[in-house]
Amino acid sequence: MKVVPVALGARSYEVRIASGLLARAGDELAPLVGTRPVVIVADECVAPHLATLERSLASAGVTARAIVLPSGEGTKSWAVLERLCDALLDHGVERQDHVIALGGGVIGDLVGFATAILKRGCRFIQLPTTLLAQVDSSVGGKTGINARAGKNLIGSFHQPAVVLIDPDVLDTLPARQVRAGYAEVVKYGLIDDADFFGWCEANGAALLAGDPAARAYAIAHAVAAKARIVGEDEFETTGRRALLNLGHTFGHALEAEAGFSDRLLHGEAVAAGCGLAFDYSAAVGLCARTDAERVKAHWREGGLPDGLSASGITAPAARLVDHMRHDKKMAAGTLPFLLARGIGQAFLDKTVTLERVEQFLNDEAR
């Protein structure tokens, strides 16, 4: 088992990574949850994994009850949040109890937020079943739901008690979902680890094809990278953690235009957003055009959108910029952008104007 610590003082926890961990989850969690029953909140698409988890908990003497929710980004809503909180209260969840989030990033974000506000804070456990959730959203404590105005605009920081990652569950994940999660893997190389981006170029195809060794290495490397950054800037106050948003400002605007639907998955939007961030950086002379083309070529090789046209979003640039105005990072009328001086050299730029971004997007659409 690979154990990655997330060092946050009193809120510290472990990310445990091992093949077959889902079937052993009961033994891992029994010392943590004690004699209290747990509630499992699961995505309707993970029924086989839910059955495995329930058997494992039962064998360890842990009583579990399940709440199954619809899959898809639409589940991260006020309506489903209310429904979930009522269901948790009906199950008698107490402040010291643990709620298990079994599913992808949608379930993890929703359950994290519900437990953050229920009785002013309950405990929860992340058991992510998608590549995207395993390498990104399950670690770091960002929780929330979407609003009509944009993605993740309502939420809180609420750290899990532990994260259990079983790479084997990815064997049942649709290929499109694996590709979408891979975008978040590559992101870590683009931020500050050019060598890891090179590893992705050499091994990405094997990872996407299900190679266990490549998959395990990428997950552990990405989790360690995120744990390090979160440990340095838990609440995104210094700007260090903001680097994890590379590609997300452009990407969230594309997602909003797609109505937060399966028309454009989050990871696909991140890939397109990273392509746009590098294109913009090259256009204003911050990085070499060859770096931008190298990034975009890797997205294409992995079956991911590399920019605006490939995302399938044809909205006017002005409308995409309007989506950006609702970004949660907006401060004093200014929206910081994650740009790059090269591969592995991302930085936060607070001098970018939305007028310049709109002009850039118009140019991209031509």
Rank of each mutant, 00 (worst) to 15 (best):
M1I: 12
M1N: 08
K2V: 10
P5E: 06
V6N: 07
V6S: 07
L8E: 07
A10I: 00
R11V: 02
E14H: 14
V15A: 09
L21N: 09
D27F: 01
E28K: 02
A30M: 03
A30C: 02
P31N: 06
L32G: 13
V33P: 02
G34F: 01
G34Y: 01
T35A: 07
R36P: 07
V46I: 08
A47V: 15
L50N: 06
A51P: 00
R55D: 14
L57S: 04
V62E: 08
T63E: 09
R65T: 06
V68Y: 04
L69S: 12
P70C: 00
S71Y: 02
G72K: 11
E73D: 11
S77C: 03
A79K: 10
L81H: 15
E82Q: 14
L84V: 08
C85Y: 05
L88A: 07
E94I: 12
I100A: 01
V106W: 05
D109H: 06
L110M: 11
A114W: 10
R120K: 12
C122A: 14
I125V: 15
D136R: 12
S138A: 13
T143S: 04
N146P: 07
L153H: 10
P160Q: 13
V163G: 04
D166K: 11
L170V: 07
R176T: 08
A180I: 10
A180L: 03
G181E: 01
Y182G: 03
V186C: 01
K187S: 06
Y188E: 04
D192F: 00
A194Y: 00
F197R: 10
G198I: 05
W199C: 11
E201K: 11
N203S: 05
L208M: 03
L208V: 08
G210K: 10
A216H: 14
A218R: 03
I219G: 13
I219N: 13
I219L: 07
A220C: 12
A220H: 04
A222D: 04
V223C: 13
V223T: 13
A224H: 02
K226N: 11
K226M: 09
K226Y: 08
G231H: 07
F235N: 13
R240M: 00
R241A: 00
H248M: 01
A256T: 10
E257V: 03
F260H: 12
H266Q: 13
G267I: 08
G275K: 01
F278N: 07
A282C: 02
A283W: 03
V284A: 04
L286R: 15
L286M: 14
A292G: 10
V295K: 10
R300Q: 12
R300E: 11
P305H: 02
D306W: 04
D306Q: 11
D306V: 06
S309T: 12
G312W: 03
T314K: 13
M324G: 02
H326F: 05
H326A: 10
K329P: 05
M330Y: 00
M330S: 03
A331E: 06
A340D: 01
Q345R: 15
Q345S: 11
T351Y: 00
V352Q: 08
E355D: 14
R366A: 00
